[in-house]
């Protein structure tokens, strides 16, 4: 076992490297607590049940997008029979008034960067920059 030093050293280095994210988070003080998006107060129902929205709002939005842009369909009938205009900034943002407190909180936590806002405009942000 002439190579013991090398083997053990290598193992230690390997372990250190693969557990790096753990140490990094400990050092940075990141908690395991989930995100806390601010939910609308006055409205209890979304266009689909909350569980559905939570899991697949992105698919719904992509579907809305294709309906409006490619098939000129603009009206969406929700699961409870109410109808909505398929419009991110006007329909979604009417209840979820703050992109920062709703969208961004989860997206930042999950480390995803949807490109919706490259083009679509957060009405509240616009008000603030104008006013």
């Amino acid at each position: 076992m002439r190579d013991r030093g090398l083997i053990l050293g290598g193992l230690a280095l390997f372990l250190g490297l693969i557990t790096f994210p753990l140490w990094y988070n400990l050092a940075a003080g990141t908690t395991a607590k989930g995100p806390d998006p601010k939910r609308p107060v006055q409205e209890k129902n979304c266009v689909e049940p909350v569980a559905v929205m939570r899991a697949s709002h992105m698919d719904l939005l992509v579907d809305w997008r294709d309906q409006v842009v490619r098939r000129s369909e603009r009206e969406f009938t929700a699961f409870d029979g109410r109808t909505y205009s398929m419009n991110l900034t006007q329909t979604c943002m009417k209840c979820h008034t703050s992109k920062e407190e709703f969208c961004d909180r989860c997206h930042n936590y999950a480390g995803v960067k949807p490109y919706c806002w490259d083009c679509h405009i957060d009405p509240k942000l616009l008000e603030r920059t104008k006013g």
Binding site: A51, V52, V62, D63, D66, F79
Partner: peptide, 20 residues
């Protein structure tokens, strides 16, 4: 994007069933 739509409705349907 028919497939996407169907996938979405599929998920929607399953979750809804769960809520029963």
């Amino acid at each position: 994007m028919k497939i996407r739509r169907r996938t979405f409705l599929g998920i929607a349907g399953l979750s809804a069933l769960a809520v029963a």
